[in-house]
């Protein structure tokens, strides 16, 4: 089956990002496809390359980077939600006149149209959040 995932809650604060990750891993292991993960609301914070969790804790962003790279998952961060919360790629940082960019590799910033497209293209779109 072809899955799209929508993540609406922030990393570490809430389990949504972890649950989505575990779901994605399990689905892929069963031979399903994870077509796209869409990060919305505080979920966009999972895309920061600047988080430094304690050594004995999981690094949520790095977990996703690895899974996405190995399985060619399209990782999309909502631009409007990201801009509100200071998640910027190189182009956006430059365009907005900010000092630096912080988006981790494999994540890309795009619009909500990508979420709607996932809803149209996928057999199931699953929401992870409250």
């Amino acid at each position: 089956m072809k899955y799209g995932l929508l993540i609406n809650e922030g990393p570490y604060q809430h389990q949504a990002v972890d649950s989505a990750y575990q779901f994605a891993k399990a689905a892929i292991a069963k031979g399903h496809e994870v077509f796209r993960v869409f990060f919305y609301h505080d979920g966009v914070n999972a895309a920061t390359d600047f988080a430094v969790p304690p050594q004995d804790d999981r690094n949520i962003t790095q977990q996703w980077v690895k899974l996405a790279e190995e399985n060619n998952i399209d990782m999309v961060v909502c631009i409007a939600a990201a801009q509100r919360r200071g998640i910027l790629d190189v182009n956006e940082a430059e365009r907005q006149g900010k000092r630096g960019d912080n988006i981790a590799p494999v994540f890309r910033i795009s619009g909500l149209g990508q979420l709607v497209e996932a809803g149209i293209e996928c057999d199931r779109l699953l929401t992870f959040g409250d």
């Binding site: 919305y40 939600a81 509100r84 909500l112 149209g113 979420l115 809803g119």
Partner: peptide, 19 residues
């Protein structure tokens, strides 16, 4: 919380996709 406002944004975009 911001849920209502950001939900409305998705609704408008989905409508723009003629769904």
């Amino acid at each position: 919380t911001i849920y209502a406002l950001e939900s409305l944004e998705v609704v408008l975009i989905t409508a723009a996709f003629d769904q």
